[in-house]
Design a binder for these strands. Structure first.
Lengths: 150, 150
DNA sequence: TTAAGTGCAAAAGCTTTGCGGGTAG
DNA sequence: CTACCCGCAAAGCTTTTGCACTTAA
């Protein structure tokens, strides 16, 4: 992501935070910056590691609390995956994912045809759908290469 | 699930295990029985809890090891979810999920129209798709009711 | 018979919480 | 000023691992 785009996004995040009644502290700005830089559905720990040698110092607890609070407020979202640690996604708009079933990697996949799919009726389940997303399950390049070597 | 259907499925699981070179011990039979009974994408711990007062005794470590081994062998699968503990699914064939973003509950959703969707081309990513699944993200009945009460 | 599976207990990894002190708005 | 936020450290979940013993095939 270009620096200018990043600054622009951070600025937008600040505005949304205040709209939602959350303060936009230097720590929170750093956390959002890190998730934009990583850009690949990191865990809270990966975000914390990325910030380790940077100013301002951000504690592990703050990273966990902040990411969770932002997700609850809809400022960021959570990615669905088959693994065992919450994965965060700075994108909140509908998009799609390729999910590697070997290494749990999640990659974005854009496709307007998929965006246009009609949401099926789930009323009988009492379930209200906010969005439809497609998941392409399979094997990523790296995992296939590892496999081939054997 | 009817008792007869469950027995039939357990029998089929036994056959697949042996085909894959995995032995079908009483513990493993019990674990698969529990995941069929629960029927709702349980965590390893939930499977273990369901077996707590039953024979044969199954240790927590065995539950974790077994579910992981079965998933790797394709005997069961993992559900994709936004939470922080692996969720197992005794269904391995393509199907779809409603995912509650408040409580992380995962519910099955069947729709032949969705099953028929064409898999997009992901070659440029080096990603090989094994199946396409749809995820309906939203809020389940229980969570909406809890919300309404406030 | 023996390779594979199991239980136990300890360690490692992930997440939440309570509290005293700090700061954004 | 004051409600919200932060760091720290401890506790609570989830998952893996090493090892000695057992068992399915």
């Amino acid at each position: 992501m270009r620096q200018s785009e990043k600054e622009q996004r951070l600025h937008a995040f600040g505005r949304v935070c205040r709209d939602r009644g959350l303060s936009f502290t230097p720590q929170r700005r750093a956390i959002l910056g890190a998730i934009l830089d990583l850009n690949n559905h990191p865990t809270a720990d990966q975000v914390h590691a990325a910030l380790a040698r940077r100013r301002p110092r951000v504690s592990r607890a703050t990273v966990f609390r902040t990411l969770e609070a932002f997700a609850r407020a809809g400022i960021i979202s959570k990615a669905c995956h088959p693994g065992s640690a919450v994965r965060y996604d700075w994108r909140t708009e509908t998009h799609h994912h390729m999910v590697c079933l070997r290494c749990d990697r999640v990659m974005d996949f854009a496709d307007p045809r998929l965006d246009a799919l009609a949401v099926p009726d789930t009323r009988t389940f009492g379930f209200v759908v906010s969005e439809l997303r497609v998941q392409l399950r399979g094997t990523c390049r790296r995992c296939r290469q590892l496999e081939d070597r054997r």
